[in-house]
């Protein structure tokens, strides 16, 4: 194994192992209602952070594609979107489990949750859009345009919309609710929280690079 090239993969795996071990066994503040569910901060929140970073990579490569028309950029953009969607699905599942134990239901009608669902629907639509155009260059161009559209709307629906006045949200950090940082009085949770974000992001990037390599090899085989 080439250590110079693969050091970040080792970091990714160790960070995930650290997150899971310290996330389940470490000390967390004891609070009413939340109790042990506060540990979900290490999984749900960090996965969505990772998703947003990876989808940002996808956005950057879509913009790059529009200015360069290089097929490589399109492949990276689409595989980054795939990895981001996977993290998003995991994040929404962990969030639903948390909601079941804290709010009593897997899904509640809440602007933040609906915004999250809308975001995932937009990205699923991105996949369908890619599937329904045969011609490669046209597919790359049209899906790059939709991807830019999708990311801007993701920011609107996830970050701005739930925080508006007059829109009430139950979700921590929105609608006047305190975010997790205010529960974490001794600031110990951030020793797992930030490494977890980096860990999930790196794992996502790793998956992305693997898929990109496979796609490039397939391309070469087709060309030969």
């Amino acid at each position: 194994m080439n250590l110079k090239k693969n050091w970040w993969k080792i970091i990714a795996v160790s960070l995930i192992i650290y997150t899971i071990t310290a996330g389940f066994l470490g000390k967390v503040p004891r609070l009413p209602i939340l109790h042990e569910t506060i540990r979900n901060l290490y999984f749900h929140v960090t996965m969505w952070f990772g998703m947003m970073i990876i989808l940002l990579i996808s956005l950057v490569y879509s913009i790059k594609y529009l200015s360069s028309q290089k097929q490589e950029h399109d492949i990276i953009a689409s595989e980054a979107a795939n990895a981001g969607i996977l993290l998003g699905c995991l994040g929404i599942t962990t969030g639903m489990i948390w909601a079941k134990f804290t709010w009593g239901a897997y899904w509640v009608n809440d602007p933040k949750l609906n915004g999250a669902a809308v975001t995932l629907l937009i990205y699923f639509a991105y996949l369908i859009l890619r599937g329904s155009i045969e011609e490669e260059q046209k597919r790359a161009k049209v899906s790059a345009v939709y991807n830019i559209f999708a990311y801007v709307l993701l920011l609107v629906f996830l970050m701005i919309w739930p925080r508006m006045n007059g829109v009430d949200s139950l979700h921590p950090g929105n609608g006047g609710n305190p975010a997790f940082s205010s529960y974490d009085l001794d600031k110990n949770m951030r020793w797992v929280f930030y490494p977890a974000i980096i860990g999930w992001t790196l794992i996502g990037v790793w998956m992305m690079t693997l898929k990109v390599r496979i796609r490039k090899i397939q391309q070469q085989l087709l060309n030969n």
Partner: peptide, 10 residues
């Protein structure tokens, strides 16, 4: 419908 409805929901 697939592309527009998610954007139109909010």
């Amino acid at each position: 419908a697939i592309l527009a409805f998610p954007i139109l929901i909010p």
